[in-house]
Simulated assay, not measured.
Amino acid sequence: MAEGDITSKADITPDSASGSISEKIILGRITGVYGVKGWVKIFSHTDPMEAIVDFSPWYIRAEGRKQAQWTKVKLKTGKRHAKTVVAKLEHCNDRDQAMAYVGNEIAVELQQLEKQREEDTYYWRDLIGLRVTNQQGIELGTVKTLLETGANDVLVVVFEEEGETKERLIPWTMDIAIVAVDIEKGSIEVDWEIEWDADL
C-alpha cells in the first residue's frame, strides 16, 4: 500500500443507525469464525493489518450489496493472530452468533480515519485521479489506481497515445521515484523518464 495508506475503497451511503449520509471507507471483511466464544477472523486492507482493530465502531454490511445500509457494531477487542486478524464484537458470544457476521464488509467513517491521519500520510483514495508529471515538466498521465507488489506499491498511470489508452507503472517510493505530492493542486511530481516504462 501507499505509505501510511489505509484503504483504496470508499462509499457514500446512509447508515442504518442514524439515517445520516456519511462517507464510509472499507477496511476489510469478516471471513470466518475463530474458536467458540464469538471471535471472528478478519481480512484487513490496513497496513499493518492489525491496524483495523484500532477503530471502533465498525460499520458492516453483506459484501457486494452496495444498496444495503450499514449496521453499526462495536469492537470489544482484536489482535493479530498468525497471518490474519481476529476480533471480538460486542454482544457476539458464541460460534453461532459469530457465523452470522461472516461475509460482511467492514467500514469506518471517513472522520475516524482523519483523526488518526499522520502528517505526510496519503490514502489511496487521495491519489486516484491526480495528474502525474516528471521533473522535466512532462505530463505522464493520471493515477488510475495502485497495485500492491509486496516490496512497495505501484502507481498505475493512464495516458493517451495515438488514440489508445495506455498505462505506465511508477513505483510508490517516497523521495526516490516520488518527489512531491500536492493534494490541493491535484498533482504528483515524479523522478521518472518516459523511456523507463519498459524497465519496470
Rank of each mutant, 00 (worst) to 15 (best):
E3N: 13
K9W: 12
D15V: 05
S20E: 15
I21M: 14
R29M: 12
G32I: 02
V33T: 15
P48A: 03
P48W: 01
A51Q: 12
I52E: 08
V53G: 05
V53M: 04
P57T: 11
Y59E: 14
Y59W: 13
I60Y: 03
A62L: 09
G64A: 04
R65E: 15
R65F: 12
K66E: 14
Q67D: 15
Q69N: 11
T71L: 10
T71D: 14
V73G: 09
L75F: 02
K79G: 07
K79M: 10
K83C: 01
V85W: 04
L89Q: 09
C92W: 00
C92P: 10
Y101C: 01
V102I: 06
E105T: 07
E105A: 05
Q111F: 03
E114M: 10
E118T: 13
Y123L: 06
D126R: 02
L127Q: 06
L127N: 08
T133Q: 13
G137E: 12
I138K: 13
E139Q: 13
E139G: 10
E139I: 12
T149D: 13
N152M: 05
L155P: 12
L155E: 09
E162Y: 06
G163C: 09
K166M: 10
L169G: 03
P171C: 06
T173I: 14
D175E: 14
I176Q: 13
A177G: 09
I194D: 14
E195S: 13
W196M: 04
A198W: 02
